[in-house]
Amino acid sequence: MLSYLIRRVAALIPILIGVTLLAFIVSHALPGDPARQYAGINASDAQVEAIRERLGLDRSLPQQYCIYMIGDTCAGGSGKGGLLRGDLGDSIRTGFSVAEDVGARLPATLELVAAGMLFALVVALPLGVWAAVRKGKLLDKFCRFISTLGVAVPDFWLAMILLLVFFIVLQWLPGPVGRLPIGATLPDGPTGLYLVDTLVAGDWATFWSAVKHLLLPMVAIGFPAVAPILRLTRNATLSVLNSDYIAFGRAAGLRGAPLYLKYVLRNALPGAVTMTGLIAGYMIGGAVLVERVFSWPGVGQYGYNSLINTDYPAIQAYVLLSAVTYTVAFLIVDLVQSVIDPRVRLK
């Protein structure tokens, strides 16, 4: 198990290095002059040049990449900064450290993505098993229709429809104002996940409000994931139901709920887990859109705002974060996989 873990992590290193390189190239290929932007419209050419030098933009690209990665040791400095020391540079737009900026917005996105994933799993897993058990029946056909339709509906459009129905028409749920009503005191807990923090503090009113604000974005970001997980679970369940070990389990007296929970669901799970990893990556991308519709103060919005302001350290950080999260999600999936399916470890 440990050696498997080490092998998997080692295989990630070249990919992560490639990812930083690509993130660097993309953000430096952006049009516009960050130094001028940083200096402001009224700055003199000399001032702009001074800023350019301070930001290190006057150096060659390889040198800039080196500084970006391992700090000013590259430029003969004293060993400060650099990605490997956890320094993502300072945002040109906000002036704060990018790491801090991102750190402040990360919980919002995490809460959104986690809720979306939970929603997708809670809907798709039981439905997938059920559809397989009732293969060919109406429910199965309905599920297939839903899965085909589900991938065809853009998440940002679904977000809008949800707003239209539940906020504008029915007025059951709050509008797109972010995680809590405008002007509300923000809970300040250790995790930054409002649901967790308010729960720990026993602040039920805020908890409830946070839940209501989360519901629509959760469905919007989670719905597109329902289709693939449902489909996969159904097919996995079908092959499990037709397997010899189910037949033998039955012959040995296994029946009812234990049969479905312990055997069917348990054996169909590995497939669903793989899909979940893929989906996690997709959701991080989708967060940009859903966060925009709901004014959700997460990293997706931050990335977007950085982009239109040519704030390249922030863009770099955002692009990097997405890729790293995606990659790590895959790693976690592989590890979970190896725990729940012993055959994986052999490969």
């Binding site: 991308g285 940009v288 995606y326």
Partner: peptide
Amino acid sequence: LDVIQAFPALVLAIGVLAA
């Protein structure tokens, strides 16, 4: 390809398109 696909498609597209 591993490196390229480590980026969510939308994020990659946004970045390249912006450039």
